[in-house]
Design a protein around this nucleic acid. Structure first.
Ligand SMILES: [Mn+2]
Ligand SMILES: [Mn+2]
Ligand SMILES: [Mn+2]
Ligand SMILES: [Mn+2]
Lengths: 152, 152
DNA sequence: ACTTAAATGTAGCCTTGGCTACATTTAACC
DNA sequence: GGTTAAATGTAGCCAAGGCTACATTTAAGT
């Protein structure tokens, strides 16, 4: 009884380590994704994205927002001249597009299984960063199938 | 055209700030939850939870694991005597139980919509920390309904 | 028993992402 | 146009969570 578990395949340790590592990586990119998505939203609706608005929307102080935006610039996702608004590079826009698609898909999925709207939006804001391509594809497929069988 | 969006209710800024704040909070508790769940697993299967095993399973170095375990102790979730294994307090066991339930439910949900097992496990490892009670309840309900209508 | 290896612990460094406090610049308002 | 308010920027602090390097203790081997 060296182990106790009764599985015959799967070594457990390395596999699980990879999963956790993947989750850690997703956590570290989550912030960048949220900023880019939000900035894109502000640009699309208001025409400009000011750091104060970004800070207010995220619920952080403006120095925090500015520091994070500096990271976006460092990673080639955004640009800004002093005392001017923030703009997205081509890479930034592409990322924003992907992130927004994930966000919407996750919300749709949650709504489809019966989660109330506000909870769906709040949970999706966190979960979106951990949804792999496989999960997104499955969600899309599930929702498409749902549309064909609309009741229930 | 001061705003562009066409919603009449919902101020947007404070609501969204709350969502982001909730996601940030979940990120900060994710680590604790993963440790507690993992330690409970090790205790259940092997009888003891050693820091080296915890580190290996998580894919971090052992000093990192020890430091995080110190946080668990500080928060009253675990105990340990020098050069001995790690144990969970009553609060630790309770949290582990809740976290494991969330984990399993999320995996089940992903499998149900057609996500392959490994992707489901990996994604759930990150998403589980962002699933509200409302989402968990909806997922449980959805899965229960599925069981009654098993095909397709 | 002694030697060696493994596990555990400690120290110190780094980055990220929060914050407050203060300085500067731009915009609003007489 | 001068004064005030708001936005923006900078500096510096802190905690969390990673890491490497080294010290100590326990367990294994012979
Ligand atoms: Mn998000
Ligand atoms: Mn989002
Ligand atoms: Mn997890
Ligand atoms: Mn888990």
């Amino acid at each position: 009884m060296t182990d106790g578990t009764d599985e015959s395949e799967m070594p457990a340790e390395p596999t699980q380590a990879l999963r956790f590592g993947q989750a850690r990586l997703a956590r570290s990119t989550a912030l960048v994704e949220d900023y880019v998505e939000l900035i894109a939203d502000l640009l699309a609706s208001g025409g400009e994205a000011r750091s104060t608005d970004v800070a207010k929307r995220l619920g952080v102080t403006h120095p925090t927002a500015i520091k994070s935006i500096a990271r976006l610039k460092r990673e080639g996702l955004a640009t800004s001249k002093p005392y001017r608004g923030i703009f997205l590079t081509e890479a930034g826009h592409e990322l924003a597009h992907k992130v927004r698609a994930r966000h919407r898909l996750l919300v749709e999925l949650l709504l489809a299984i019966g989660v109330p709207l506000e909870a769906a939006e709040a949970d999706a804001e966190g979960m979106e960063h951990h949804a792999s391509e496989a999960t997104l594809a499955a969600a899309a497929g599930f929702l498409a199938a749902r549309k064909h069988r609309p009741d229930e």
